[in-house]
């Protein structure tokens, strides 16, 4: 049943989000600490292993794969709802600060990738 896949995905996101908020509260941060990342790990743990019986069920697969296929369209809708006008009219400080942060990360990326050793 397709809904099983959707429900498993939903449960992972909810558990991950609650866990992320609990971690945030525990360390005194007013933010969700990695809730989506935790949810991804949960989903991988449930469905990502070769011997997973859940992942072998076509219904479960189709429920999860539908949303994975909707990822790009959702990202396009997200882009269309960004506050681009505010970002571009915010003045030089914000624009240069944002650009500088990206530039530094770009310089560091190849160095750290080498450390990560590919992993293809």
């Amino acid at each position: 049943m397709t809904i099983y896949g959707v429900a498993i995905l939903a449960a992972c996101l909810l558990v991950g989000d609650i866990a992320g908020r609990l971690i945030g509260a525990a360390i005194g941060v007013e933010a969700n600490v990695g809730g989506v990342g935790i949810a991804m790990l949960l989903l991988l743990f449930l469905l990502g292993r070769d011997q997973s019986r859940l992942a072998a069920s076509p219904g479960v697969r189709s429920g999860v794969e539908f949303w994975a296929a909707m990822y790009i369209p959702i990202v396009v809708a997200m882009a269309a709802t960004q506050n681009v006008a505010a970002a571009l009219s915010s003045g030089a400080v914000a624009i240069i600060a944002g650009l500088a942060a990206v530039a530094l990360a770009l310089i560091a990326a190849p160095l750290l990738s080498r450390l990560a050793g590919g992993g293809a």
Partner: peptide, 8 residues
Amino acid sequence: FAIVSTAF
């Protein structure tokens, strides 16, 4: 929701 699903 979609991001989590890509982990599959």
